[in-house]
Design a binder for these strands. Structure first.
Length: 901
RNA sequence: GGGCCCGUAGCUCAGAUGGUAGAGCGCCGGCUUUGCAAGCCGGAGGUCCCGGGUUCGAGUCCCGGCGGGUCCA
């Protein structure tokens, strides 16, 4: 059977279901009603459940009913996964329950945690974020997907299409109490994440309440090929089912209960009559345009027409309420994201979190409400903590802090952006593309915002549609080349995987082995203690010795489990027994740094909070780096606490255990906290456990007890990016060496200052203060003396041509200072003042012209040049410098010029 | 990892072409006012982030470093 073929379920056919084609949407569906024409789903047909509730059940009850029903049908209930998909390197957020089990379990490489299983997984999808609100609850960014999954492998068949539909049918009729003639099964095709399969979408009273996917193909070179593992991937919309049962006016009423009214009054929005809202909901469900992303205000007009209401009246009533709905949804998503450890930033999932926070802030602004968004988020936390998610409460303080920080940051950008835009508009009355780019690139002010501010100032700004492309082009970003496989990659299959001695004993520095191959100019041994590059740990170096030969090992690489040694020197012939010696100093230092990285990461988590995650790391011989996620700068006090706790942990001399575990078992035992350095793409993981302290999946070499790390010293912590802090540290010998050196420097400084080491900072500050005072005093003195002298000198003058000329010889103040004094003292007297100040073997000169029509700058330029110096200046003041012995002739030239003109 | 922007008085920031470092707020003093808010007059306060270079001369130009911001990977 191929994709798109009729999906024939015997179970349904036996009950009398027939297949039909919907004349409106053209899709096929199965129904018990021989007279039915359309598929029954909105927008082909309106909702028929609103105002006709059948059960007064809350979300929690509906969820529990589902899970326990599935349990009664031999499914194992498992707990929810985080909404941040840490175990995936191709996804940021958990967007469906099946995401929890991709890619290894669905591919059959790793057994599932249970089979079959049932789960209710909170999911976040931002694709339809614009429709959240206007569609009255059909679209949400955060929702719970209830599911039952069965993984059918070659070894074990669990169940497939028939049983899946049976399970749904029984759940819908028995548990939800829906008469079976009201259930329509629509046929469809589901594609996603490289997998595909046919699906059935049960429709009840206009609402699709589940999707039953039969995942049986995977994409290979653009074609779908059958999979070995066939996966039952169902998704039951908890929110929709609850809405259906309750018949509330909107989906938000079903999901958020009292919170709808709390938010509404908190946001100062008027209540809308329930009947009007219900009718609006029903009508909105049949408008296809909403699905196509058409503008909401156009649609509002249509709905007004159908309801025979004034469209501006409707707009006034509904539009604020839609914003309340959107805020209800967004704040819940924010609460879950932050509780699960998201740190807002400008990249990856951090950006998605920020996007929702900023959208929410914008909604608050549009509603004209001045309040802390965190208050609303906190309400969500307490609401959902009581409804099956107690973990939210534990994260409350952090959630509130992060939202507050983000709000402050947003307002700061608005403030700054407005100021800069004002400045530009003031100076040139317009804003061009260049300005937009600078504002965005250098100041982070998005063009949309610039537009708003500029409009307020009455300036029109054109934002090109391809603005962000222009930015990208400006950065000339080269796409990082995909890690290219070496040309000899297939050749490696001829050899057995290398025995990795460094895993058996990380302290083994010498070994004997046999040369089994020469590949790509490198040497392949049957076993090796040389660690290849990986996990942020650089490859080992060392030497290979054999009878009659010797070569340095300059780098080591590993492909497909085969370790290749790049040599500087002759290659030992095939079959040679070689003796390998690893550069012990470097390797030990790297092991210490590597284990120290794990210790510091865990310590940072304990000091700063569970949102701290490894962003990147690099181990070196002298110094290493650990980049962690955190939402603000680390204070010096926090850094000291991290440092001290890390050292204490090292001193506790905890055992460091390494072992291999099946992925699912490891995740179940330790959680996703394993994946700190990124996702390891293997079904079997190497686990590095600092006993009782920290567990990570890691392929590096580690010391066997934390005491071996030695001292840990963090040199600095700096924000390398929004939401990411880099810790630079040393461990072991380099840490000790640099600490010793730093201390002797401190000692020396203390000695120079004549104080104890503890008082160095105070004494230094005092000395600087004193120096400042003294400088000030000296300057004041010099100025006073010089001022008296200059006052006397200026009383006298010599008549040169038409000009009164005075000459001031400066001794104790700078030429600058002298000019200022002369300028002040000369007052309104007509005068040309020549200032000189000896400076080494040169003389600095200046000519100040007061009250004459004469360009001082030109005069000085010519006069200095003529005696082998240089200078220039403006109308009133010229300055320059000349050789000492040319002073007389310089003065002569000036006199001649003045006399001659 | 790369690009761009910024670092000037206690704070917020101006300082076109290199040529005597400025404003507003705050602070101190005086005057005005019953007092407050404010107003007027005067004053103190600067290693123009650090180091090097170019130049007769650098806050300004060039290079390097430190710190902050921001964008792209």
């Amino acid at each position: 059977m191929g994709l798109g073929d009729p999906i024939e379920i015997q179970f349904l056919i036996e009950r009398g279901y027939v297949r039909k084609k919907c004349p409106k949407c053209g899709e096929y569906f199965w129904t018990l009603d021989p007279d039915r024409e359309t598929c029954g789903e909105a927008p082909c047909e309106p909702y028929s459940f609103i105002g006709r509730g059948v059960a007064d059940k809350g979300l929690e009850e509906v969820r529990e009913d589902f899970l326990s029903f599935m349990e009664s049908k031999d499914h194992t209930r498992i707990g929810r996964y985080p909404v941040i998909a840490r175990w995936r390197d191709d996804l940021f957020l958990t967007s469906a329950s099946i995401v929890d089990f991709q890619p290894f379990i669905t591919a059959g490489l790793v057994p599932p945690p249970a089979n079959p299983l049932t789960i209710s997984q909170p999911c976040i999808r931002l694709k339809d974020v614009d429709k959240v609100g206007p569609t009255m609850g059909r679209h949400l960014t955060i929702f719970e997907m209830m599911a039952h999954h069965a993984f059918n492998t070659k070894e074990r068949f669990v169940y497939w299409k028939e049983r899946t539909v049976e399970l749904f049918h029984e759940y819908a009729t028995e548990v939800l109490g829906i008469p079976e003639e009201e259930i329509i099964y629509k046929e469809g095709i589901w594609e996603g994440g490289g997998n595909a399969g046919p699906d059935l979408e049960p429709i009840v009273r206009g609402l699709e309440i589940a999707t039953l996917v039969f995942m049986e193909y995977r994409e290979e070179n653009g074609k779908y090929v059958p999979m070995d593992t066939k996966v039952v991937d169902t998704g039951y919309g908890l929110e929709r089912i609850t809405w259906l049962l309750r018949g509330d006016p909107t989906g938000f009423h079903a999901v958020y209960g009292d919170l709808v009214d709390t938010f509404r009054s908190e946001l100062g929005v008027e209540r809308v009559e329930e009947r009007l809202l219900s009718r609006y909901s029903e009508v909105s469900s049949i408008l296809r345009e909403l699905e196509k992303g058409r503008k909401v205000d156009v649609l509002r007009g249509k709905i007004a027409e159908i309801l025979m209401l004034d469209s501006s009246y409707l707009e006034e009533k509904i539009s604020p309420l839609e914003k309340v709905f959107a805020l209800l949804d967004h704040t819940k998503a924010i609460a879950f994201m932050l509780a699960d450890g998201l740190v807002p930033s400008n990249v990856n999932e951090g950006y998605l979190g920020r996007l929702l926070i900023r959208r929410s802030l914008k909604l608050l602004k549009l509603l004209g409400v001045e309040m802390n968004l965190s208050e609303l988020v906190a309400k969500q936390v307490s609401y959902w903590s009581d409804k099956g998610f107690p973990e939210l409460k534990e994260a409350l303080d952090r959630i509130v802090e992060i939202v507050d920080i983000e709000q402050a940051r947003y307002e700061e950008i608005l403030r700054r952006g407005e100021k800069i835009v004002r400045g530009i508009v003031k100076s040139k009355r317009k804003l061009d593309l260049e300005d937009l780019i600078t504002l965005y690139d250098s100041h982070g002010v998005p063009p949309e915002l610039v537009q708003t501010v500029a409009e307020k100032l009455g300036v029109n700004v054109e934002v090109p549609d391809n603005f962000y492309e222009l930015i990208a082009g400006r950065h000339e970003s080269r796409k990082p080349e995909a890690p290219r496989l070496p040309p000899f990659i297939d050749e490696l299959d001829r050899y057995k995987p290398t025995k990795l001695l460094y895993y058996q004993d990380p302290y083994l520095m010498e070994f004997d082995a046999t040369v089994v191959g020469h590949v790509g100019g490198m040497v392949l041994l049957d076993e090796t203690a040389f660690y290849p590059e990986g996990g942020g740990q650089p490859s080992d170096v060392g030497v290979l010795l054999w009878p009659g030969g010797r070569a340095e090992v300059v780098s080591v690489e590993k492909y497909k489990g085969r370790v290749l040694h790049r040599l500087n020197g002759p290659l030992p012939p095939l079959g040679t027994r070689v003796h390998g010696k690893v550069d012990e100093g470097r390797r030990l230092s790297r092991m210490r740094h590597h284990t120290a990285t794990h210790v510091i990461l865990e310590t940072a988590r304990r000091v700063l909070g569970p949102h701290v995650w490894q962003w990147g790391a690099q181990k070196g011989d002298e110094e290493s780096r650990l980049d962690i996620t955190h939402y603000k700068s680390i204070t010096p006090e926090e850094l000291e606490r991290i440092e001290l706790l890390a050292n204490e942990t090292a001193m506790r001399n905890l055992p460091v255990n390494t072992f291999w575990l099946l992925r699912t078992d490891a995740e179940r035992r330790y959680g996703f906290i394993l994946y700190q350095g990124g996702v390891v793409p293997d079904p079997i993981l190497r686990i590095v456990e600092i006993q009782g302290y920290n567990v990570q999946a890691c392929g590096g070499t580690h010391v066997t007890r934390t005491g071996d790390i030695g001292p840990i010293k963090i040199w600095r912590a700096r924000r390398i990016q929004d939401g990411v802090i880099r810790l630079e540290f040393s461990a072991g010998v380099p840490a000790a060496r640099r600490l010793i050196k730093a201390h002797s420097m401190l000692k020396e400084i203390a000695q120079s200052l004549g104080v104890s080491e503890e008082e160095v900072d105070k004494a230094f500050k005092a000395a600087m203060e004193e120096l400042k005072d003294l400088r000030r005093e000296i300057r004041r003195h010099a100025r006073e003396i010089e001022e008296a002298k200059i006052r006397e000198t200026l009383k006298e003058f010599e008549k040169v041509g038409d000009y009164r000329v005075s000459r001031v010889e400066l001794a104790s103040v700078s030429l600058d200072e002298g000019v200022k004094l002369v300028d002040k003292l000369v007052g309104s007297d007509e005068r040309v003042v020549i200032l000189t100040k000896p400076s080494g073997d040169r003389v600095e000169v200046a000519v100040l012209v007061n009250g004459y029509d004469l360009t001082a700058g030109d005069l000085v330029r010519e006069a200095t040049r003529s005696v082998g110096g240089g200078g220039g200046g403006n109308q009133r003041l010229g300055r320059g410098s000349i050789p000492k012995e040319k002073l007389k002739s310089f003065l002569g030239v000036i006199r001649a010029r003045l006399g001659g003109s």
